[in-house]
């Protein structure tokens, strides 16, 4: 019944055949190309932003997924990231024409001690939803080194450490102030 059709059709270039000059279907960039997170102890969370810059005159949706590279493609001394679900990020990001959009990426290490002292690498893939015959995809390298510790579940953002120092400093100053006030009062009383 279908034998009258001798050929199969392989249509992939309608746009090019209609336009007078070659066009790029998309133009976008991603920053940063690499993120290094050090001393992230089990039970802790780190977060950062990636920026997708859409340089086209129309808006695009970009798809984000993780990718585990082969050992030969990883940085030296880096092992495969144990579980991609430890990364959380939006799986789709819409970027308006000639605009940039940020996407927040969180890396959360489970609290077990077994994840302490490790060096891992995982890639985050960013690719446009609309695809031509050839499509560009960027990989962002995420390098994670875990510190010591474990078992305690706590959330510490990158800047929390400085907050702790500030709090402790205020408490110590208050105690010193109280002490000085107490001794002066005692001396006066004598």
């Amino acid at each position: 019944m279908m034998r009258q059709h001798k050929y199969i059709w392989f249509v992939v270039a309608l746009v090019v055949s209609l336009l007078p000059s070659p066009v790029l279907a998309w133009s976008f960039s991603v920053s940063p190309p690499e993120v290094e997170i050090d001393n992230l102890s089990p039970g802790q969370v780190a977060e950062f932003n990636l920026t997708i810059h859409n340089k086209d005159d129309i808006s695009h949706t970009f798809m984000l997924t993780t990718h585990n590279p082969e050992e030969s493609e990883r940085r030296p001394e880096r092992a495969e990231f144990p579980n991609s679900t430890w990364l959380s990020f939006p799986h789709q990001v819409e970027v308006r024409a000639n605009s940039a959009a940020k996407a927040k990426v969180k890396v959360a290490i489970p609290p077990q001690q077994e994840w302490a002292g490790k060096n891992w690498e995982i890639w985050l893939s960013i690719t446009p939803e609309d695809k031509d015959f050839l499509v560009v995809n960027y990989y962002m390298r995420i390098l994670v080194s875990t510190g010591e510790g474990g078992e305690r579940i706590e959330t510490v953002s990158p800047r929390t450490g400085s907050h702790i120092v500030l709090t402790v400093g205020v408490i110590v100053l208050l105690l010193l102030g109280c002490g000085i006030y107490y001794f002066r009062r005692k001396v006066k009383a004598k």
Binding site: P32, E34, E36, D38, H53, Y138, G147, P158, G161, S162
Partner: peptide, 17 residues
């Protein structure tokens, strides 16, 4: 044991085909 995150924000990746 402060977490350190190193990001080169002035670097970006882009290729054209």
């Amino acid at each position: 044991g402060t977490i350190t995150i190193t990001i080169l924000t002035d670097k970006y990746i882009e290729i054209t085909l």
